[in-house]
Write a protein that binds this DNA or RNA. Structure first.
Length: 717
DNA sequence: GCGGATCAC
DNA sequence: TATGGTGATCCGC
């Protein structure tokens, strides 16, 4: 096996090889074991590999097509040591090749490739001047983030080992020692360690798993059982941190700072004791990671899995050493796609390289995205005790064998509406945004949403509106239907004026400084921006988003080409669904009789009311850019290549001017404040970028308008 | 507000 | 034969 890009960090001249990781483009896996180390001994050896060249076979052309089929199955999960990845990759490829699922994966891959090409082009366009500018910006930002480092808390992440599989083995000891997977032939939830040796793992279809391991035993999922054992583990967690954060049935974060202090013992002992208690009280083993923040604790709990632990001390040097050569894929929030892009465009494999490429990251991504990447490079993460979190949506979806049968589809929709309504009423929820999700037989996913005037929760209301949404998509061959309700009654984040930061011009201009006071670096903030149009760090008015750890998204959406296929456009042009609708409705109502008449509660479209309310385009070019970067009016920095942003910024100053003039006129004509407020409110609710580009000289815009354009994307919807 | 997409478990 | 379900978040319209 050829090893490239070797890294070895040693402190105190003690050469202790505690861990070795091997990884390619998509993955990195541990091939060694980590030993417990103290602060002064903290040594990590991570090896990242570009390619594995041993034991590979080629076909007649010398090509290895399976290598380009990117699955998540070979990513480094615990218990995958010594797996013949090449064989797994090849088997997965052979079993998938040509299927509709496979074709869809190829389609998605093509979009990512486009995205990568685009980013590369943007990279090439950057001049030396641009780069040196962004280097300065990045350096400053990194210093600011560093200043926020908090080493005062001790976080522990517990992760149950192969939880579902372990529970099943408890209730059926004959499974012990045999390769076993929880799930079905279509999908596996988790696999025990014996099965993992064959490359079987969670999220893998069962039929592929069986190919990899013919003697694999399948056990159906039983959530009642898992919930019961989960409750037992939580009883233990509560003793160490009454406010622990449950991340899922089998994972939790505990702030053990206080318990360490109170009992005057090391975090390491707490971790040992906790794991022993869990084992004694449940019969299940778990792994633990201890670190100064949740992001690192999560990484640490994976290091000595299963049934082990790893402590990263609250010491900056130890953290930096630990993080420096850590493969980025180990970080929660960096998934398959993000890893691929960062590697392909910037050559970034390790967390350390996030800082080395800081100027590029700063130039090509939004501030929040760049902040996240820098935080990763610095080993920063959340340390706060989480506030109460409210549910923002509730949903259910079902997969079935693909069908075009509309009667059947409406019947399934009715069943989903029934379940959704029941679930909502259990939690006392009423919502006004209903989203229909469809997955076509070719695995394309579509969502269609409507926002109502009224909050609803009844089965009848949900089904009525869901049926409207579905009707508009038929005919269509569908393999999954889902319903989601959001925008709940009393949802404090639901309103369009809820962001307290969307207030003043001062906030807008001083956004970066303002962020420094409010924004805690967090793994949640790492969203990609597709192109330079919106990627500049000015005025992007960071909101302090609160997101559960380990639940982050990165959007690398390529905006062009994600529409329907031409074939589908053609087939959906006829009105076959109309002739079926009566029959379908009958079928639905016979299954779930609907009382009363349908009432018209179609979506209120505020923007229709505002067709006249167009924004004047700013042609004011009098503003100066000092040194080609700095705005002469407010000092904000923008390089020459950011044409759109500069224009937008000029618009902002013009609007500011207009508003001053306008307010003078208002004073003279004594317009009532009430009408001003109304106008302002409606405008804020109906802003779109398209309107910004329309022209109507002299029309009035409140200054909030411009602020919203920038901050809109950060506001929870 | 909508739709596509990523990510985690 | 055959590739899940739930929830969150973000970006670009």
């Amino acid at each position: 096996m050829k090893i490239e890009n070797k890294k070895c960090k040693i402190i105190n001249r003690k050469r202790v090889c505690v861990a070795v990781w091997v990884g390619g483009l998509e993955s990195a896996s541990k091939i060694g074991t980590i030993q417990s180390v103290s602060v002064c001994e903290c040594v990590c050896v991570w090896v990242t590999m570009a390619t594995a060249t041993e034991g590979t076979e080629t076909n007649d052309d010398g090509a290895r097509p399976w290598q380009s089929y990117h699955t998540v199955y070979t990513t480094a999960k615990a218990g995958m040591d010594g797996v013949d990845k090449e064989k797994v990759q090849r088997t997965v490829y052979e079993m998938s090749k040509g299927s509709k699922y496979f074709q869809n994966e190829e389609r998605k891959d093509a979009f990512i490739t486009q995205k990568i090409d685009k980013l590369r082009t943007q990279c090439d366009k950057l001049t030396q001047a641009d780069l040196s500018h962004f280097q300065k910006v990045a350096d400053r930002r990194i210093l600011e983030l560093e200043a926020l480092r908090d080493l005062s808390r001790i976080w522990l992440h517990v992760d149950m080992d192969a939880f579902y599989a372990a529970v099943e083995t408890l209730s059926n000891p004959t499974l012990k020692g045999k390769p076993m997977a929880v799930g079905s032939m279509s999908m596996i939830s988790t696999a025990n360690y014996e099965a993992r040796k064959f490359g079987v793992r969670a999220a893998m279809p069962g039929f592929i798993a069986r190919k990899l391991c013919p003697e694999l035993i399948f056990v159906p999922t039983d959530f009642k059982k898992y919930t019961h054992y989960s409750d037992l583990t939580r009883t233990v967690f509560r003793r160490y941190d009454p406010n622990f954060m449950a991340a899922s049935l089998d994972e939790a974060y505990l702030d053990i700072t206080e318990v360490c202090k109170r009992r005057n013992i090391k975090s390491e002992e707490i971790a040992e004791e906790l794991r022993t208690s869990v084992y004694e009280e449940t019969g299940l083993t778990c792994s633990a990671g201890v670190a100064p923040n949740r992001l690192l604790a999560k990484v640490c709990s994976d290091i000595n899995k299963p049934n082990g632990q790893y402590v990263l001390p609250n010491d900056r040097m130890a953290v930096m050493t630990f993080i420096s050569s850590l493969p980025i894929r180990k970080i929660g929030g960096i998934g398959k796609v993000t890893e691929h892009i960062l590697k392909a465009v910037f050559g970034i494999n390790t967390c350390e390289q996030m800082l080395e490429k800081a100027s590029y990251l700063c130039a090509l991504f939004s501030q929040s995205t760049a902040d996240f990447f820098f935080s990763v490079g610095l080993g920063l993460g959340k340390t706060d005790s989480p506030e109460v979190r409210f549910r923002k949506s509730i949903s259910n979806e079902r997969t079935f064998s693909a069908t075009e049968d509309e009667v059947l589809l409406y019947k399934k929709l009715a069943e989903l509406a029934e379940i959704l309504s029941t679930d909502m009423q259990k939690e006392g929820l009423c919502g006004r945004t209903l989203t229909l999700k469809l997955k076509t037989s070719s695995f394309e996913v579509r969502t269609r949403a409507m926002t109502l005037r009224k909050y609803i929760s009844s089965r009848e209301d949900i089904l009525k509106h869901a049926s409207e949404l579905l009707k508009a998509e038929l005919p269509l061959s569908v393999r999954l239907i889902g319903l989601r309700m959001s925008h709940f009654d009393g949802d404090k984040y639901g309103g369009s004026t809820s962001n307290p930061k969307q207030k003043t011009i001062t906030d807008f201009i001083a956004s970066v400084d303002a962020d420094r006071n409010h924004f805690l670096p967090d793994v949640a903030d790492h969203d990609f921006v597709s192109h330079t149009e919106t990627n500049v760090s000015i005025g992007s008015c960071q909101t302090s988003r609160d997101s559960a750890d380990g639940n982050h998204s990165s959007d690398v959406n390529c905006q062009s080409g994600t529409g329907w296929s031409s074939e589908e456009i053609q087939t959906s042009g006829n009105n076959a669904s109309c002739s079926n609708y009566g029959q379908v409705k009958e079928a639905v109502e016979s299954t779930f009789p609907i009382q009363g008449q349908f009432e018209d509660t179609s979506t209120l479209n505020l923007s229709n009311l505002l067709d006249d309310e167009r924004l004047s385009s700013c042609e004011d070019k009098t503003m100066l850019w000092l040194n080609d970067y700095k705005c002469s009016l407010c000092g904000i920095e923008l390089p020459p290549s950011f044409v759109e942003e500069r224009l937008e910024h000029s618009d902002f100053h013009l609007a500011e001017k207009l508003q001053k003039e306008e307010s003078r006129i208002h004073q003279r004509t004594s317009v009532s404040s009430r009408s001003w407020d109304q106008k302002n409110r409606i405008t804020r609710e109906s802003i779109s970028k398209k309107q910004k580009l329309s022209q109507k000289e002299g029309s009035y815009r409140p200054i909030d308008y411009f602020f919203l354009l920038k901050s809109n994307k950060n506001r929870p919807s």
